[in-house]
């Protein structure tokens, strides 16, 4: 099985190099949490993801868009279609141009994306002291160690140390690159009334919203983990059979027999 060794060596090297090349994260190293979606058997904790949806809807969505998330995706989190329709209808989106040529607004439908809180980037900046609240659809994948990073950031607000310089209107957060973040601490005890009665501590809310956002960033994670197991098992068995098939075919060669000669 020298081949296995060769490949293993090569991959370890590549993996090592890939991680070595990302050595320059500027903020404080994020807290390492345990997540339901970690590991080969990881799945989304549905209860937590549902609570996270509530946190996003009631807190984050005031400033952050979620443009790749559609209301219909909520079926993946275990919601019924009627509920989804009702939630969607709470929001207005641009409708078609009417017969008089005027632009209209209509209630959102399940196939619509979650509406952006601001009409455009400039409006978003103007409302947020010049800073643009990033879209959160991919935030977990767009940051190193994204789940832990977002969790740490949400819980990481501190009083600024004496030697740091935090400009007016900004807040000190050591997990943020540079330490000064425009977002005010978003989570306060009890800011959300959880439907399932869970106590809404900042830690709990951060955990829930990270679970939700991880779902939004990687909606196929569960099916990917399942299919991966099947594929790896299949390839494993196939490779073992191929190995024995190879050993058998090679037997005369390994025995030193001249298998080519009689051909000529």
């Amino acid at each position: 099985m020298k081949l296995v060794k060769n490949i293993a060596i090569a991959l370890t090297a590549v993996a090592g190099l890939a991680s070595a090349s990302f050595g320059s994260a500027a903020g404080k190293h994020p807290m390492q949490m345990e997540w339901s979606f970690d590991g080969a058997f990881g799945q989304f904790d549905m209860q937590s993801a549902q609570r996270g949806w509530q946190v996003y809807k009631q807190v984050c969505s005031a400033c952050h868009s979620l443009k790749y998330f559609r209301f219909r995706n909520l079926t993946d989190l275990g919601y019924e279609e009627d509920m989804i329709k009702a939630w969607a209808a709470e929001y207005e989106v641009e409708g078609e141009v009417d017969d008089a040529g005027d632009e209209t607004m209509r209630a959102a439908r399940p196939e619509d994306a979650f509406p952006n809180p601001f009409p455009n980037e400039n409006a978003a900046r103007a409302s947020n002291g010049g800073a643009l609240p990033p879209d959160l659809s991919l935030i977990i994948k767009a940051r190193h160690d994204g789940a832990n990073y977002v969790y740490s950031l949400l819980n990481g607000y501190e009083d600024a140390p004496a030697d740091s310089h935090v400009p007016a209107g900004k807040h000190y957060n050591p997990y943020f690159k540079g330490g000064a973040i425009s977002m005010a601490p978003p989570l306060a005890e009890g800011i959300v009334d959880y439907e399932d009665g869970m106590a809404a501590t900042p830690e709990q809310m951060a955990k829930d919203v990270v679970t939700f956002l991880t779902y939004v960033a990687e909606p196929k994670l569960v099916v990917r983990h399942h299919m991966g197991l099947e594929v790896l098992m299949f390839l494993g068995i196939l490779t073992i059979i191929l190995y024995f098939s190879m050993k058998k075919i090679w037997k005369p060669v390994k025995a030193g027999r001249n298998v080519y000669e009689d051909k000529k």
């Binding site: 081949l3 490949i7 890939a18 990917r224 983990h225 991966g228 594929v231 490779t239 190879m246």
Partner: peptide, 29 residues
């Protein structure tokens, strides 16, 4: 047959990346 066996091993590792570490070799940015 030797190449087929090698492909089996190689694809096993390849699949492990696709299904379990799909973004490890990419960059978050």
């Amino acid at each position: 047959i030797k190449d087929a066996f090698g492909a089996g091993v190689f694809f096993f590792v390849f699949a492990a990346f696709i299904f379990y570490m799909p973004n490890m070799l990419g960059h978050p940015d």
